[in-house]
């Protein structure tokens, strides 16, 4: 298939996944922030708003204060902030326009409607509701889009790139959240409360409860989100999914750098899973994220004609 189309699909998946994960993250942090400290806890419980801005990468080019409302605005519906939920959806929709012949009509409509409603009057943020409606909208529509992808799109190269994009972004977002929310593993209460907030934000609370007998403290949660292949949104599951997708798309998987790198990363995660030391978790997150970045560069190199991500 055309390299350009493959890239569009890849980034369509990425932008949509980014929108959804950002929405989930903001909602989770917002919920946790509304309430105070549980009894017996000395320190505050949530991701700070400044941390959120850091999750979105590096320094800030604009004057965004760290107050809750400012950060929420910047990351939710500021069209000029490329990391905002609305901006991500807009880009996704533009990407979908470029590939309308490849994706099914229902998929296009799903994205288009998502985008249009966000720019309509439905989501005038009211002080007393916050941005909950936007987050819910994005979450639901994302689920719809991926559901339609699974139902109506031919399982070929095109869908492979779309899925690869979605999953690699998911992995990257979870790693970002882990690295920012749990910087001081295994520091007692503060990290624990953040871990719980994080888990609920990504929607993995029930899954965690069923999979892990330990209470939702920082270390088991981090391990769950990193290594639990049976949880669809874990980093390990994301890595496997990207690997599998690329194998579908690539005619010579054994010669493919990104595929080789992913296979090695997958095995590496299994090794790290068995190792027990806490300190390694932070290092693991850092290294895995770096490796995923290299995978991304390899993908661009191999499939998109060397069009590097900016």
């Amino acid at each position: 298939m055309l390299a350009r189309i493959a890239q569009e699909l890849f980034w369509l998946g990425r932008n949509l996944a980014r929108a959804e994960h950002t929405a989930r993250l903001l909602e989770g942090v917002f919920q946790a922030d509304l309430q105070g400290r549980p009894e017996g806890q000395a320190s505050a419980t949530t991701l700070s708003w400044e941390s959120l801005m850091h999750i979105m990468g590096g320094r800030r080019d604009r004057e965004v204060s760290d107050g809750r409302d400012a950060v929420l605005d910047a990351l939710t519906h500021d069209p000029d902030n490329p990391a905002s939920v609305v901006a991500c959806v807009t880009r996704a929709r533009e990407g979908a326009s470029a590939v309308r012949d490849v994706i099914s009509a229902e998929m296009w409509e799903a994205i288009n409607t998502t985008h249009l409603r966000l720019h309509g009057d439905d989501f005038v943020p009211r002080d007393h509701t916050g941005h909950y409606d936007i987050y819910q909208h994005v979450r639901e529509r994302s689920a719809l889009f991926w559901g339609l992808t699974g139902r109506t799109m031919l399982r070929d190269e095109a869908s492979a790139f779309l899925l690869a994009g979605g999953r690699i972004e998911a992995g990257d977002m979870v790693l970002r959240m882990l690295r920012v929310a749990l910087p001081d593993l295994p520091d007692g209460n503060q990290a624990d409360a953040q871990a719980l907030a994080l888990l609920q934000a990504v929607g993995g609370f029930q899954a965690y409860r069923r999979a892990v007998p330990a209470p939702a403290h920082a270390k088991p949660v981090a391990r769950f989100l990193l290594f639990e292949r049976n949880y669809p949104d874990s980093v390990a599951a994301a890595v496997d999914a990207v690997n599998e997708s690329l194998r579908t798309a690539d005619s010579h998987p054994r010669a493919s750098e990104p595929i080789l790198r992913l296979s090695r990363l997958s095995a590496d995660l299994e090794f790290r899973r068995s190792a027990e030391t806490d300190a390694d978790l932070r290092v693991t997150c850092h290294e895995v994220q770096r490796e995923l970045g290299r995978v991304d560069a390899d993908i661009a190199q191999r499939y998109f004609g060397g069009a590097r991500a900016a």
Binding site: G57, D66, V180, A307
Partner: peptide
């Protein structure tokens, strides 16, 4: 809200978000 009531630990430096290059 602006007064940080929490001990500020500096988050690690994260790689910037990536954005696909547009040529279309």
């Amino acid at each position: 809200d602006t007064a940080p009531a929490r001990p500020e630990s500096l988050p690690p430096a994260l790689p910037d978000l990536r954005y696909g290059a547009w040529t279309g």
